[in-house]
Design a protein around this nucleic acid. Structure first.
Lengths: 220, 220
DNA sequence: TGGTCTATCTATAAGCG
DNA sequence: TCGCTTATAGATAGACC
C-alpha cells in the first residue's frame, strides 16, 4: 500500500526501517484494537522496536491477564497440546498459504513472460527458508511437549506408546549414568570445597526461592 | 475496507462476529509478519477467538522467547532460568503486592466501620485463590523446565545433579513399566479393534498433522 | 466452518517541510 | 525524528457457495 509495491524483506536502510516501523506499528495496533472491539476478544501484542524499545497493546485486560490466560491454557484447560496446536494452526498455516500464493504468482509470471522475475524467486526462497526455520521451531516445541508427556505416566493409553516412552527413558537414563560416571571420576581425582560451591548449578538459587515460597510440589 | 464503512463497536450478530474474526485475524497476522520481517523485530501476538480458541503468532523466536524478553525487561540479561525467574519476579510479586494492598484496605475498613465489608473480603478471597492458582502454575512451569533439562544430559555439571536426574528417571521408568504391564494384561484379556482406535491418544491427530507436514524430527 | 468475488474503504511508500 | 500529502497497494464487508 503505497506508491510502489514493496518486497517483504528486511529494509536495509536504518532510517527507513525505523520510519516504517513507526508507521506499521501504529497500523498494527489500530488493527489489533479494532479486532478486539469488533469481535469482543482478548488480544495481546508485544513488539520490540528496532532500537529495542518495548511496545505493548492489550485492551480491556492487562497484558499480564492475557498472558496469564495464555500460560494457563496448556496445562489446565485442554491438555498440553493446545499450545503447539494453536501455533501450527495460525503461523504455520499462514506461511504455507503464503508460499502457495507466491508459487502461483511465480508460475503466472513464468508463463506469461520468458524473463526470470528475480524478485518473486528470491521472495519464494526466503519464505521457504522461513518455513524450514518454522519447522525446526515446531519440532523443538514438540520435543519439549514430548518430554513433558513422558513424565506424565497417566497419559499413556496404548502399549506402543508405553514402549516408546520406556525406550526414551532408558536411553536418557543411560546418558545420565555415563555423565555421572564421568563426574565421579573427575571428583576422585582432584577437587576442593571452593570448587564445588562455584560449580553449583545456578538453578539452586531458583530452587531455594521456590522452596521458601512453598512453590515446589512434593516430588519436584 | 469493504462495501460499507463499519463502526468500531462490538458486532452483535454471532455468526457475523465469528466471520469477521477469522478474516481480520488473518489480516492481523499477515501485518504482524510483514512488520517483523521488514523491520527485523520481535513481534508476539496472542489472541483468543470468540469461541475461546487460542491463536498465536511470532516469528523467528517462539512466543515463549518473546514473552521471556518481555517479562525480563526490567532486569538485565542473566542465565538460562530467566523464564521462571522473571515470571516469579514480575507476576507473582505483583500478586503478592496486590494482596498486601487489599489486606491493608480491609484492615482500614474493619477499623473505621463495624459493618463487615463483603466486597473487599470477597476480593481478598479471589486474590488469594489467584495466588493459589499462580503457585500451581509456577510449579507447572518449573516441572516442565525440569523435565526438559533432565533430557538434556549435557547440562549436568555436578554429581548431586546427576544423581537427582538419575533418580527421577528411574522412578518415571518404573511408572511407565507398570503402566505397560497393565496395558499388556488388558490386551491379552479382551479388546476389539474398535476399542483400540477409540482409545487412541488424541495427540495422534497432531502427530499425524506434524508428520504430514514433515515436522517431526527423527527421534521424536 | 472456510473459500471466492468485488466494490469499496483503509494503510502506507515516497516525498516534502 | 516527526507531520502532512497523495498515489497506489492492500484489506475487507457483504454476498454467495
Amino acid at each position: 500500500m503505497g506508491r510502489v509495491k514493496l518486497q517483504i524483506k528486511r529494509i536495509e536502510n536504518t532510517t527507513n526501517r525505523q520510519v516504517t516501523f513507526s508507521k506499521r506499528r501504529n497500523g498494527l495496533i489500530k488493527k489489533a484494537y479494532e479486532l478486539s472491539v469488533l469481535c469482543d476478544v482478548d488480544v495481546a501484542l508485544i513488539m520490540f522496536s528496532p532500537s529495542g524499545r518495548l511496545c505493548l497493546f492489550s485492551r480491556n485486560k492487562s497484558i499480564e491477564e492475557i498472558l496469564e490466560r495464555y500460560v494457563n491454557l496448556p496445562e489446565h484447560e485442554r491438555g498440553s497440546l493446545l499450545k503447539i496446536d494453536g501455533y501450527i494452526r495460525t503461523y504455520f498455516q499462514f506461511l504455507l498459504k503464503a508460499l502457495g500464493k507466491l508459487k502461483d504468482e511465480a508460475d503466472q509470471i513464468h508463463t506469461y513472460q520468458a524473463a526470470s522475475p528475480e524478485s518473486t524467486d528470491s521472495q519464494l526462497e526466503e519464505l521457504q527458508q522461513e518455513i524450514v526455520k518454522g519447522k525446526s521451531r515446531i519440532a523443538d516445541i514438540h520435543k519439549h511437549e514430548t518430554c513433558f508427556r513422558i513424565f506424565e505416566g497417566e497419559e499413556i493409553t496404548t502399549l506402543s506408546q508405553a514402549e516408546f516412552h520406556e525406550q526414551i527413558l532408558e536411553e536418557t537414563l543411560q546418558q545420565v549414568r555415563l555423565r555421572k560416571q564421568g563426574l565421579q571420576e573427575k571428583a576422585t581425582s582432584s577437587s576442593s570445597a571452593l570448587d564445588w560451591i562455584c560449580k553449583k548449578d545456578p538453578q539452586v538459587h531458583i530452587l531455594n526461592f521456590l522452596e521458601s515460597n512453598g512453590l515446589l510440589p512434593q516430588r519436584w
